[in-house]
Computed example of a mutant assay.
Amino acid sequence: MRDNLPERAEHGGRVRWHRTREMGELLDFSANVNPYPPDIPWIPDVSALKDYPDDRYVTLKEEIGRTFGRDAAEVAVGNGSVELIRAFCSAVLGTGDAAYVESPTFAEYGVSVRLAGARCTADENGAAVRFLCNPNNPTGKLLTRVEVLRLLEGVAGRGACLFLDEAFIELSDPAQSVVDVSHENLFLLRSLTKSFAVPGIRFGYAFGAPELIERVETVRLPWTVNAFAESFAIEAFRHYDLLEESRERIARERAWLCSRLDVLNLGYAPPSANYILIEVPMEAEVLVGRLLSRGLLVRDCRSFGLPRHIRVAVRTHEENRQLIEALEACLP
């Protein structure tokens, strides 16, 4: 039995767990999902459950390919983005390899690297893989397309691979995406469930050179995208352009939230997506507890190495107003 397993990563979105502890209804600001999702005309087809899904997911990959102008052979799918992170690391990294993960960022990168038998390093030049989250979670920092392409050129020049996580770019600024770029040293990750506010179905997808995609798909467990997730995803990609309205509404609410945080004299990282990293004048754990007692769940950022920060999702205007009122009551 392995005794060197990494610790499990901490995540937001634990609202169902809290509800089972008889805390009643909660406003979940800890999970960064679209507060204004497109209305998708999808009804689950129960008859689809009697058959196994097509584990090649040909129809789904073709729909994704049409949406982004990519060949279906350049598309991988998985049970959420985390499965694809794990599969990528298992397919690319091994004992003796190193990966560069800049902190603070999504904890699953480091966990997946270690589970693959590799290690994380602070020396980018010696890394086989360079991880980049754009916009970054939890800071919200967004690199421009030009900056990402320049970084890709440098990584490829060292013979390494760039793992680019664009899970939140659809709710930020898609013009900065490089989803149209086919490069043998690039693996690009996306998450449909955040954009369409259906995290419960678990669906992620990715792009890469066909040879890399084949390796990732070989490592991925079979049939992990269930029939309902596949069906919803196909319908969602057919309505992908509706996310434009979501981005516009999120941007307005984000600006309002920031203006209220300014009034409260709270510092925050310049946001670009549907969440804000806030510096608070107390231990995050204490503030999180106070907010929870008022029915609001926010992300405690201690697991990111930020003991005096919380991360809050941008939600509807009425919900955001309740967050500001709760912060006014809970802050010293």
Rank of each mutant, 00 (worst) to 15 (best):
L132H: 07
S90D: 12
G159Y: 02
A87F: 01
V75I: 10
R21V: 02
R254T: 08
I64P: 01
L306W: 07
N320Y: 08
C133I: 09
G13I: 02
A209G: 00
R56D: 08
P199R: 03
A284M: 04
P281A: 02
N134I: 04
S195L: 06
M23T: 05
F228I: 13
G208P: 05
H183G: 05
L261A: 05
A251M: 04
I234T: 14
A160H: 04
V314F: 08
I213W: 00
A107H: 10
E230R: 12
V33K: 03
S81N: 03
I234H: 06
S172N: 12
T316G: 07
D39L: 11
N274R: 15
L297K: 01
L192R: 04
D97N: 15
A156G: 10
P270F: 03
V101S: 09
F196Q: 01
A255Q: 12
W256I: 07
A127L: 02
C89G: 02
E184G: 02
L84W: 06
E285Q: 12
G267Q: 13
G110Q: 10
S272G: 08
R294E: 08
A107T: 11
D241G: 04
Q322H: 10
I324Q: 03
Y100T: 00
A175C: 04
A48R: 11
A209E: 06
V314T: 12
G157T: 00
L266E: 06
L186M: 09
D28G: 01
Q322W: 03
D51L: 09
E244A: 13
A227W: 15
F187M: 15
V225F: 05
R202W: 06
A160M: 04
C89D: 01
A229F: 05
R315W: 09
S172E: 05
A273W: 12
E214M: 00
T20C: 07
F163T: 13
V129D: 06
P104F: 05
A128F: 03
G159T: 02
S182R: 09
R252F: 04
F237G: 01
L149P: 14
S172P: 07
G12S: 15
R260N: 14
Y240W: 15
E170M: 09
E235I: 06
S246K: 06
A269G: 08
D28Y: 00
E108A: 15
G140F: 14
G110I: 13
V113D: 13
A127R: 03
T105G: 15
A197S: 15
R86K: 06
R302M: 07
L242C: 05
L306D: 14
S303T: 13
L186W: 12
L292Q: 10
A236Q: 08
Y268P: 08
G96P: 14
P271N: 08
I213E: 00
I310L: 08
V15K: 11
R215Y: 00
V198K: 10
A122C: 01
E244R: 11
M282F: 06
F207E: 03
A98I: 01
S182P: 00
T193R: 09
E102Q: 07
V288G: 04
V179P: 01
I250L: 10
I234N: 13
H317P: 10
E283N: 14
D51F: 05
D123S: 02
P199K: 00
V77Q: 01
I213D: 00
